[in-house]
């Protein structure tokens, strides 16, 4: 018998997609991460979502600000290393008091293989919080949907940058065959 936990282990990307629909997210800004690939596919297949693949993650912070000016809700999808590219641009939603929800897949976390992912992965939460972002972590599949829901609600109800960090225990570590 499938229980809620095993459903979530399989379906958490679809659960995030359902939340994006529920919150009427119209703009999706992203730099691809393997952990987000299923969610990205669903967004790309949705004609009501304008998906922009960015050249660097800070573009997404700026784009979401523009979207909100025009009355549309957006979300930024990225991996933890991309958070480092966003730091100064976060001054925009902070100073303007505008929503900026981010959904971050963690690298440099449980079981990391690539040394270059560790410095930023280890600093992701600290850096975001240093830049005034409300951060919640999801380290079990069944926690992903409620945490993302909280991140979207906090952003759009209280006008600030917010982030869900999806732990590497949920995504699975990339081991390059080792």
């Amino acid at each position: 018998m499938p229980d809620a936990a095993t459903d979530a282990a399989r379906d958490w990307p679809d659960q995030i997609y359902a939340l994006l629909k529920e919150h009427d997210i119209r703009q999706v800004a992203l730099v691809p991460d393997a952990g987000h690939s299923r969610l990205i596919k669903r967004c790309l297949a949705d004609n009501d979502m304008k998906v922009a693949t960015l050249t660097t993650e800070e573009e997404g912070i700026a784009m979401l600000f523009g979207a909100w000016l025009g009355g549309e809700k957006g979300v930024l999808l990225m991996q933890s290393s991309g958070v480092g590219n966003c730091i100064n641009m976060l001054s925009v939603p902070i100073s303007h008091r505008t929503p900026c929800p981010m959904i971050v897949t963690m690298r440099g976390d449980y079981g990391e293989f690539n040394p270059f992912q560790v410095p930023m992965g280890n600093a992701t939460q600290t850096v975001l919080e240093a830049m005034g972002t409300l951060v919640k972590r999801a380290d079990a599949p069944e926690d992903v949907a409620p945490t993302v829901n909280a991140t979207l609600r906090l952003a759009f109800n209280t006008y600030r940058p917010t982030a869900t960090l999806i732990g590497q225990r949920v995504i699975g570590a990339k081991t390059f065959g080792k």
């Binding site: 119209r26 703009q27 304008k50 922009a52 700026a62 784009m63 979401l64 600000f65 523009g66 979207a67 909100w68 000016l69 025009g70 009355g71 549309e72 957006g74 925009v92």
Partner: peptide, 8 residues
């Protein structure tokens, strides 16, 4: 920012 606004 212009892109986000123009799309919206």
């Amino acid at each position: 920012m212009g892109l986000g606004l123009a799309l919206a």
